[in-house]
Amino acid sequence: MKSAPFEHHEPTTVDEAVSLLESLDDPTILAGGQSLVPMLRFRLANPDVVVDINGIDSLDYLREEDGHLRVGALARHADVAESDVIDEKYGSFADAAPLVADPQIRNRGTVVGSVAQADPKGDWGSVLLAHEGEVVARGPDGERAIPAEEFFLLPYDTTLGEDELITEVRVPTPSPNEGSAYHKLKRKTGDYAMAGVGVRLTFNDDGTIESAGIGMTAVDITNARATDAEEHLEGERPSPDLFAAAGELAAEQSNPESDEHGGADYKARMVDVLTQRALGDAAERAGTVTVKRRVTQ
């Protein structure tokens, strides 16, 4: 990589990082480098100052605590993919982690960095939206938790302040009646999503859906919630027809553009397909239904 020269700061504590962000002129934060490094390499990003947070050991965690799954700013995608607690309870995280980029990038890239990047084709934003998760940011005035739904503004643009550092993202610990899943369509390993859908279903004891969360990837200017589909599901009992209707509503609410990843109509249709598939998986994981195919394949 032949980047332009820049000043490199390596804070070792969050406080130090935040005070650097406050005092330095237009700093750029480096975590896993998944997005920043290619931009440096193409010299599209030419920052004067980089604050490298990889030395802040206290941000390297992935744990359940205080009713949340907490993903620290230095937890790598590979950490999520290899985590037992994820494997056991967080279907959507377990689905998404191995679908992010390629193995080399997963070893380095971070979940929080991906959320901070706010690329509408990023996977984690949709997972957070489906779980109604939060982005926890620390700035000069202390810590605040931003609901995922209020975080994303535009491609690469969020409500994070210029002197704030995201320390973690978190989602509520699931109830026993909850299941989640993430489905992604891509052309090859390492490619961006053509479309992706994250789903969370929480069931009442009677088998009806108490609440649903659906986040969509690569089909709008940000990761976006499919609220119409969520509402349609609530209070209902799972069935192929119900999920088909939810898929259709999600597709209608999506707003894809035609590009090298396919035409807008195709992507909307894939939102429908992926939503139905993810709903099926989530319902199965909640122990509510078994999805069967009438015909092999």
Binding site: R237, P240, F243, G280, T288, V289, T290, K292, R294
Partner: peptide, 17 residues
């Protein structure tokens, strides 16, 4: 469509889908 060939088995306690 995904629903084309799919059936849900809701288990014994559940009502028909």
């Amino acid at each position: 469509q995904p629903a084309h060939n799919v059936e849900f088995d809701l288990g014994d306690d559940a009502e028909p889908a």
